[in-house]
Design a protein around this nucleic acid. Structure first.
Lengths: 209, 209
DNA sequence: AAGAAAATTAATCACCTGATTAAAATCATT
DNA sequence: AATGATTTTAATCAGGTGATTAATTTTCTT
């Protein structure tokens, strides 16, 4: 009997194809990516990509679900941790995402664009699995703080703002860099600064409403 | 001699095709849009789109340059107006863009995505024409205010933040609405609230650095 | 009303792209 | 080394897509 069934044996090249696909898909989007691009990027024959994954769409589904989970999973871990205070959570979230985005600046625009192209389809894919049943720890902490400090801002605004300030600069990076003449290094330095600045700003917002 | 040369005569259907193209391109992006989609959306025959515009790409170039200019032109008008103060400018900018985005929520993700797909190509198209030679009025006003009030924040951060807080909610709208269960009406109401909130927040940021 | 110019359409072409197939190469087991 | 299973490749197919062509309809000018 075979000791190493197909799955383990192929793990290497299968993974290589997936990595190549991830690079090409995130760079050009689903529609603009040809199966041949992935073949070329991976260095393997065109037919192999259909041998391992049954079609371009199946491969894409795997990639984007992985990216979405990468994006959302860590969020839930931080947001639902009873051991940290609310301000600590905000610090952690911002720091975490900036680090991730410095390394993968293309992910947000990729995800947002594919969601935009077909909202229902993608949203159902992360769907119920990521919907927390009970109340989030961060929600309880917010209510406590809001009550104690007589805060009236809509927490959705706060959430929106945190995400906006953290993610959008990466989405607009090519345009921003072009208009300001910044290099990528300078841009990344600014993002490092923002790890400390954004929490301050969020706090200032909460207090001035 | 002909009084109405082709251009005026065709303005109507030519414009209809352009409008249809704008809708389809902004919804699906360049690569996912087939010339036949535009034909169908406009109600005219496939060949007409090549009769008026020579190719799919030429048509797309026209559309995206128009959208970019729509986006940037009003910006320059506000930002370079000596008649308004700096806080007034911020108010105006935010108000203006929220109004525009409520009506065309698909524009930012469309533009950002196509820029991402091929940064150089698009950026050169708006290129020099939109590069202001002299110092912007808003830049002078910023320096004056910064000096008077001893402000040390990097103005690029302030700019980034204003844009982020204004535009990003629209980019993330499908995801945000899905996670919070908001309707489109509720979402748009929140955006109206933000017309007043964002300037407050920006001001709070500037003061707490 | 006639004829020319312009607008619109149906039919078609050449190429691209996702996918399949059958053959070749590699690998594992005996 | 032989045999069978698995991986990889070259060749090919069927359908889709951007674009063109030639014919038809509409509009304009006289």
């Amino acid at each position: 009997m075979k000791k190493t069934p197909e799955i383990e044996k192929n793990a290497s090249t299968e993974e290589q194809i997936k990595e190549a696909a991830r690079r090409v898909f995130t760079r050009k989007g689903y529609a603009a990516t040809r199966t041949r691009d992935i073949a070329e990027e991976s260095g393997f024959n065109l037919a192999l990509i259909n041998y391992y994954f049954r079609s371009k769409e199946k491969l894409f589904d795997i990639i984007i679900v992985e990216q979405l989970q990468l994006f959302i999973h860590s969020l839930m871990g931080i947001v639902n941790d009873p051991a940290t205070t609310l301000p600590e959570k905000i610090d952690l979230l911002i720091s975490h995402y900036i680090d991730m985005l410095v390394q993968n600046p293309g992910i947000p625009i990729f995800i947002l664009n594919e969601i935009n192209a077909d909202p229902e389809k993608l949203i159902e894919k992360l769907g119920v699995s990521n919907t927390i049943r009970g109340e989030l720890v961060i929600a309880r902490q917010w209510k406590e703080m809001a009550a104690a400090k007589k805060i009236t801002v809509n927490p959705i605004h706060v959430m929106m703002n945190t995400i906006s300030l953290t993610i959008f600069p990466f989405v607009g990076s090519p345009l921003i860099r072009n208009r300001t003449g910044m290099t990528l290094e300078q841009f990344n330095e600014m993002m490092q600064e923002r790890k400390k600045l954004i929490p301050k700003w969020i706090n200032a917002m909460i207090m001035t409403s």
